[in-house]
């Protein structure tokens, strides 16, 4: 009986950590995507300064959370997303708009994949 209680406590701890991990990754995804969306909007309106500000904010946010997310997410994936996001800001100008939108879309897709890998989806099971 002691073992059962101990094992259930262990499982409880594991599930709590899992829940916290999922919440953390999801909230990070939402906050960063929000900043990137704002950056895209400003870039569409050719307000490149504001676009760069929002993208830099997203980059800063990602960098600050990357280390903690590494406890829940494959480190290689985190590195790739970090590199993609940091490549977006320098492209926020009139001359490289197509590249900017392309890389922005790539960053958002990678972030969406990151979140999707941590939520209950049939595809994730198999």
């Amino acid at each position: 009986m002691k073992r059962l209680v101990l094992s259930l406590v262990l499982l409880g701890v594991v599930l709590l950590v899992c829940y916290y991990g999922v919440s953390f990754v999801t909230s990070t995804y939402k906050e960063i995507t929000n900043q990137l969306d704002l950056g895209t909007e400003y870039a569409k309106n050719e307000n490149f300064k504001a676009a760069q500000e929002h993208i830099k904010k997203a980059e800063k946010l990602y960098t600050s959370r990357e280390q903690f997310m590494a406890a829940f997410v494959n480190h290689g994936i985190l590195d790739e997303i970090g590199q993609t996001i940091s490549g977006v800001a320098p492209l926020a100008n009139k001359d490289s708009l197509p590249e900017f939108f392309s890389l922005m879309s790539e960053a958002k897709t990678a972030l969406a994949h990151l979140r999707n890998d941590h939520i209950f989806l049939i595809g994730n099971l198999f």
């Binding site: 899992c18 829940y19 991990g21 999922v22 829940f72 890998d117 941590h118 209950f120 099971l125």
Partner: peptide, 11 residues
Amino acid sequence: MFITVYRTIIL
């Protein structure tokens, strides 16, 4: 993280 638990049960 939950996926690891689900996959472990299936495995």
